[in-house]
Amino acid sequence: MGKSKIMGSAKASRRKSRKKASLIQARRKKEFLYRGYTLEELLGMSFDEVLGLMPSRSRRTYMRGLNYEQQVLFDNLKNAEAGATIRTHRKDLPIIPQFVGKTVSIYDGKEFKDVEIKPEMIGHFLGEFVITRKMPVHSGPGVGATRSSKFMPLK
């Protein structure tokens, strides 16, 4: 065996030093864009312009008009301070740019789950971020099981 195999080649050491140098540089945070617009630009737009950018289901919800409970939640979210938490059972309200940074506690059928609204959530519904169903957990065969399934091999 040659000495270069044990010690490593010069090319490998240069590659290793380049890799270390690239890890040292801090990752540049990627700027958020929604359909080509920054969050500041979205906040500067009128409500109708923002609706034109949203998906059709979300746009249709606002175009047809909100019902009473949705309208109350909409007003509360729009007027809330950044630190306040708003509790609700409504999961069918589409997220708009004015809601970003607010915290909502959404009822999942058992308890309230806190959801902080981020820019990536624009256009989605509140209910998409709270799981309302849980997977069934089955035990082994027991009373009422068929004759053949009672004799399960033990591991």
Rank of each mutant, 00 (worst) to 15 (best):
G2N: 02
K3M: 07
K3F: 08
S9Y: 03
K11D: 11
K11F: 15
A12M: 12
A12H: 11
A12G: 08
S13E: 14
R14M: 13
R15F: 14
K16G: 00
S17L: 10
S17F: 12
S17Y: 10
S22V: 09
L23E: 07
A26T: 14
R28D: 14
R28T: 12
R28A: 08
K29E: 14
F32K: 04
F32M: 05
L33F: 14
Y34Q: 07
Y34M: 10
Y34N: 03
Y37I: 03
E41N: 09
L43W: 12
M45R: 04
D48T: 09
D48W: 00
E49I: 00
V50I: 07
L51S: 10
M54I: 12
M54N: 05
P55Y: 10
R57P: 01
S58F: 10
S58M: 09
S58T: 05
R59M: 06
R59Y: 04
R60N: 04
R60T: 01
T61V: 10
T61F: 02
M63F: 08
L66W: 09
N67D: 14
E69T: 11
V72K: 15
F74E: 15
L77P: 07
L77H: 02
K78Q: 05
K78T: 11
A80E: 08
E81D: 15
A82F: 12
A82Q: 09
G83M: 10
A84E: 15
T85W: 11
R87L: 12
R87E: 13
R87P: 00
T88A: 02
H89I: 08
K91G: 15
D92V: 12
D92G: 13
L93Y: 15
P97N: 01
P97V: 06
F99A: 01
T103W: 04
T103N: 07
S105V: 06
I106K: 09
D108L: 08
D108Y: 05
K110T: 08
K110R: 14
K110F: 09
F112I: 01
K113D: 02
E116P: 07
E116G: 13
E116Y: 07
I117F: 06
I117R: 00
K118R: 12
P119Y: 14
P119I: 07
G123I: 05
F125T: 09
F129H: 08
V130K: 10
I131P: 12
I131A: 14
T132L: 08
R133E: 15
R133C: 05
K134Y: 07
P141K: 02
P141T: 04
G142A: 05
V143K: 13
V143S: 02
S148Q: 08
S148P: 01
S148F: 04
S149P: 00
K150N: 07
M152V: 07
P153V: 05
P153R: 09
L154D: 15
L154K: 11
K155P: 13
